[in-house]
Design a binder for these strands. Structure first.
Lengths: 218, 218
DNA sequence: GATAAAATTTTAACTACGATAAATTTCAAT
DNA sequence: ATTGAAATTTATCGTAGTTAAAATTTTATC
């Protein structure tokens, strides 16, 4: 039955969010979902398959959230992307954390079998932002824009990792990811563009509280 | 007997290096070391204790390698630190990888029980480099040097993570870590300092082959 | 509507892991 | 040689993921 399958996945999501990655065991999952363990194997697959499914759900939500990215120039575009992701993370923090932890675990255990794309899309966007900035004459050209894009994306990536490990909260994620990104751009920015970046960076230093009105958060 | 203890640790190191983290099981370790499982518990402790011991060895080697850091100005200092670590990693790549993976695993399972310091020392050095650069008038002062230090260190850290996950090799680690670091400094560098950084960054783009004579590599 | 076939679910069991209590051995000091 | 403490092993526990085979439910056919 498809309903059973959905129920299993739903219970798995809840457990993962409430009790973390270690607590998600097939036996307890089966019990909570009102089925037996082999049924999980039949309807969902192995534990790795189960994790892949959960992660795929998160990835899809990320992709959907990032679909509506419009061109507003590098600064606002980066801010919008990071802000969108931060909002999405904050909305269901426990689950996103656990799912990303599971993703990390999968990457190591099953090599490249993991879904292609928690990073894929955001990586492309980051690179596009830098290349566009270069084409628009916002960069001086002393440095390879592709390298800038790579390092800028690194700043975003390490922020995700720190957030996922609990080292920083969602607000810290937004601040670190953006400041890393802006910093890399500023390294080769034309004076006017650099001034705009510096101004944004200074703004990031101020503690924010007007963040709440961005999203109702139900 | 102390000899047994050392033998256990030695076999553990070898296994970790040759077959990876997943292959390091107490049973096989006991068998290869010619003892039984409870003896490991008696001489070394739990599996977490064993991993902590192995990681501590790596950390100590890193600390020792970083002790002889002299002040040469930010650029050379960063290059020296990253180069030293890269050489150390390359020297015993498999073991360092596995040990760092184990370290990640420990961080998550036992919270803050992990040894305080794979990152600690290098983090301090990175921050010092940036603060010194600021004091020496190499930075314009538009940005908080501490933020620059944090992001610069992030660039180093993500490079370690990428290397540890097999995404890049030791050479790639050196390139990414350094370019991330230099890029962050360049964001707020005084013209002369920025020119020096840009020159170094351009140098990093060229594929290197004269790297072999830095260390005999036995 | 009964029955055969197909699909689904469960019972029961396997292997491997980390961990530990209790029994055994080892070995030094009296 | 005896005794007592320390080290080592035997044997076992509990839990994890996984799977073969039996039991059940569903579906299709006559």
């Amino acid at each position: 039955m498809e309903r059973r399958r959905q129920r299993i996945l739903s219970v798995a999501r809840t457990t993962l969010a409430r009790d973390g990655f270690e607590a998600l065991t097939l036996r307890s999952l089966a019990q909570q979902a009102g089925v037996t363990v082999p049924t999980i194997y039949n309807l969902v697959g192995s534990k790795d398959d189960l994790l892949r499914e959960l992660i795929a759900g998160l990835v899809e939500r990320c992709e959907r959230a990032l679909e509506e990215v419009e061109d507003h120039g590098p600064i606002d575009m980066a801010r919008h992307v990071v802000g969108t992701l931060a909002a999405l993370f904050a909305e269901d923090e426990d689950f996103c954390r656990a799912a990303l932890v599971a993703g990390q675990r999968l990457e190591r255990s099953s090599g490249a079998n993991a879904p292609p794309g928690i990073w894929q899309r955001s990586s492309q966007i980051a690179m596009r932002i830098c290349l566009d900035a270069s084409r628009s004459g916002l960069l001086r050209g002393d440095l390879d824009p592709r390298r800038i894009g790579e390092r800028a994306f690194d700043g975003y990536r390490i922020a995700v990792i720190d957030w996922l490990n609990g080292a920083i909260d969602a607000e810290g994620f937004e601040r670190n990811a953006l400041s890393g990104f802006y910093l890399c751009l500023a390294a080769d920015a034309v004076p006017r563009f650099r001034r705009a970046l510096v101004s944004r960076l200074a703004e990031l230093e101020r503690p924010r509280r007007a963040r709440a009105n961005r999203r109702g958060s139900t």
